[in-house]
Amino acid sequence: MTEYKLVVVGAGGVGKSALTIQLIQNHFVDEYDPTIEDSYRKQVVIDGETCLLDILDTAGQEEYSAMRDQYMRTGEGFLCVFAINNTKSFEDIHHYREQIKRVKDSEDVPMVLVGNKCDLPSRTVDTKQAQDLARSYGIPFIETSAKTRQGVDDAFYTLVREIRKHKEKMSKDGKKKKKKSKTKCVIM
């Protein structure tokens, strides 16, 4: 069974824990209790493949930012979460993405942009803004509501699919490099 290491990042209060708990335990946590770091595991079937999701729910508070490099190193894919009623959390996505790329030393890291709290009427981040940002990053965008469960499975499952595509691409690139290195030079 394939294991996928997913990391949920975003500013404090955007609903990272609520999304994760909704996926794992099928219930909505409405009281806000700032996370330092929590880890969850769940076995699911995605596109006919049974897999184990190892999900790291991270601290959004700035005082825990020193811990970010460590979990970013171990993560295979990242859910970059903002709240649709919090423009600052949307603007912060850029910083999370840049930090992930720096730590992973790669421009090509599996990510999904997630606009959470889409059940709320007080939207300050337009869907088109988020779609445009995701398009500019070359990553999928999904709106979710941890409260109603809308888009929750889709967000995590899409990230797994992005990781699969990335692994497939990397193995193809690896095979191309191996083929090239088999060419021999004969000096007579």
Rank of each mutant, 00 (worst) to 15 (best):
G15I: 00
K5Q: 10
G60C: 10
D33M: 15
K16L: 02
G48C: 04
L56H: 06
D57T: 03
K5A: 07
D38T: 03
H27I: 12
S17T: 14
T20W: 02
T20M: 10
G15V: 01
Y32G: 02
L52E: 06
E37H: 03
L19P: 01
E63K: 03
Y64L: 15
E31R: 07
L19T: 14
L53Q: 11
I36R: 01
A11T: 09
I36Q: 00
V8N: 01
L19S: 14
C51A: 11
I24G: 12
G12Q: 04
Q25I: 03
L6R: 01
F28C: 04
I55P: 02
E63V: 06
K16N: 09
Q43N: 07
C51H: 07
T35Y: 03
L52M: 12
E63C: 05
V44P: 04
T35C: 15
E62S: 10
I46C: 06
Y4K: 08
Y40M: 06
A11V: 10
G10S: 04
D57N: 02
K16T: 08
I36A: 00
I46F: 07
E63G: 08
E49Q: 12
T20E: 14
G15L: 00
D54P: 02
G10N: 01
G15P: 00
I24E: 14
E62M: 15
V29C: 13
I24Y: 09
D57A: 01
G15K: 00
S39D: 07
G12K: 01
A18L: 00
L6C: 06
L23V: 08
V45N: 11
D30E: 12
E63Q: 04
K5W: 00
L19M: 14
S17Q: 00
Y64Q: 12
G10F: 00
K42I: 10
Q43P: 06
T35K: 00
L53R: 01
Q43V: 05
Q25D: 03
Y40C: 05
I21V: 13
K5T: 09
I55L: 07
H27W: 15
N26H: 15
A18Q: 07
V9C: 11
L53G: 04
V9M: 15
L19Y: 06
R41G: 08
I46D: 11
V7N: 12
F28A: 02
E63T: 11
E31Q: 06
L23Q: 15
Y4C: 12
R41I: 07
Q22D: 14
